[in-house]
């Protein structure tokens, strides 16, 4: 899969015993550009924590060997202030206070939304000063202001629809990554959009026109696959 904008990747330790949950966490987080180390038990997780440094821990409450809260307290007792995101099941929601008491920074109730998980992770990393969220995305003299949602190229303002904005943002965040039409559809129009993928071609062609994107294009059509964004300096 494609590389991300920043090369020093954030590292996440996932301590979760359910293999399927671990699998999707690893795959999903890697796709988002994090480096993930999965551990299926608390002891193994604590060992890993001593051998390497991580930027964040995702910790399940129900672990086979040691209770998640206990693990949390352990980590804090060692003097570490690494952000910890706990995963709980609703039944344990009254334990929320306990979780935060034991030193967890945030918690998420299963079954959670992956987008929400990502948002929480980003928030925790930002809070701990590990990343500085860029308010503006820049490439090829295109400037994307995430706050005002304004776009300009070479200082000239361009008006984009929300869908076009979403597509451009996705491309600029993940340069060189090839997105299939399905993925683009899911990411910008939602998972439950059930029209055909042709709509993506329409949006892309509008976007290209508005950007004045002529061959060799920034947003390229990859035959039989989809689209990818190639900023000039790394061109083919």
């Amino acid at each position: 899969m494609g590389t991300d904008e920043n090369n020093n990747k954030m590292t996440i330790l996932v301590i979760e015993d359910d293999p399927v949950i671990t699998e999707f966490l690893c795959t999903g987080l890697k796709y988002e550009g994090y480096e993930v180390t999965p551990k299926t038990a608390a002891k193994a997780g604590l060992d890993a924590l001593q051998q390497a440094t991580f930027d964040l821990i995702i910790l399940d409450v129900m672990l086979p060997d040691i209770d998640g809260f206990e693990v949390c307290r352990h980590i804090r007792d060692r003097g570490s202030d690494i952000p910890i995101l706990m995963l709980t099941v609703k039944k344990e929601i009254s334990d929320r206070v306990k979780g935060l008491d034991s030193g967890a920074d945030d918690y998420l109730t299963k079954p959670f939304c992956f987008d929400e998980l990502l948002a929480r992770i980003r928030a925790l990393l930002r809070r701990s000063g590990k990343i500085r969220e860029n308010k503006k995305l820049q490439a090829e003299a295109i400037v994307l202001d995430m706050e005002t949602r304004e776009v300009s190229r070479n200082g000239k303002r361009i008006d984009l629809t929300p869908t076009e904005f979403g597509l451009l943002e996705l491309f600029m965040r993940h340069p060189h990554r090839v997105f299939t039409r399905e993925t683009l559809l899911n990411r910008v129009l939602g998972y439950d959009y059930d029209g055909g993928t042709n709509i993506i071609d329409v949006h892309i062609s509008h976007l290209r026109n508005k950007l004045g994107d002529r061959p060799p294009r920034l947003i390229r059509t990859i035959y039989a696959m989809g689209y990818a964004f190639y900023p000039e300096e790394t061109g083919t």
């Binding site: 899969m1 949950i21 699998e23 999903g28």
Partner: peptide, 26 residues
């Protein structure tokens, strides 16, 4: 029962989301 349902549902939902967000391309 709810608790027991939640674990597989979490796996299912998470896996599906990750697939839909792009892992399906791999």
């Amino acid at each position: 029962v709810a608790h027991e349902l939640m674990t597989p549902l979490t796996g299912l939902r998470g896996s599906l989301e990750v697939l839909l967000r792009g892992a399906q391309d791999d």
